[in-house]
Amino acid sequence: MIPKNELMGALADGMLDAEERERAEQQLKTDKGALSEFEWAVMLKQSVRQHCRPAESSEEWKKAKARLDEIDRVKKAEHFVGKYSWALCGIFLVAIVSAAVFNRGVSRPLGNAHVAGLFSGLQLEPAGSETQVTESVRKKLGEVPRPVAHLPGRVTHVACGQIDGRSAVRLSIQDSMGQLTFFTIRSTTSIDALQRVEGDYQLGLLGGVPSVAWVEGGYLLILAGDRGFESLIQSAESIKSSR
């Protein structure tokens, strides 16, 4: 049994089935309270409908639409990342490994442990003609670094090999003051054993022999000889300045 106020409200809303409506309409005729409930319901309904207008919402709709677009963009990006995550991981891994290899090859200094290898690991052989020397160097390094063509004396011996995984060439030179050794080492810019720095040069002893080193064209160049550092620097300067 529906309470009177609810019955009259539902009648005002047109939400009663035929049987209930008939009963409600019968009640309206006989029950003053029911009639009053009905009239109140109708008046209140009309009043709310008349006065409570839809709110202006065009701005809010624009914002809501923009938010949907934003969600689409984010989801699209997430979808892409999700779909190609393995590929992206692979690319990052390759980039990291490449960077590490590059870093290891280019900037890691030549450690003290490898200094002995500079002399013992590169076995000298007679140099032959200047062309033969050039060819040996080119074969090892893939090019002839500019300083090799401007050495301050005659090349008597040549040795090619690897020092700490880097291509290296050792040349013995005879100049007016005696023997010099010239090293060309790829992919490094310094050597731990040479701690003193003067201008562009690193100075020190390699295997007990005074040496100066400098960097040119991606190579570490070392000039070593049983003579003073000033003399070595002078020779290095003449190599650097000759064109």
Partner: peptide, 16 residues
């Protein structure tokens, strides 16, 4: 729903 609407209107009527 019917009950809530009836009670809601009663409350609205009181307010008005």
């Amino acid at each position: 729903v019917r009950s809530r609407i009836a009670r809601g209107r009663a409350a609205l009527r009181q307010q008005l």
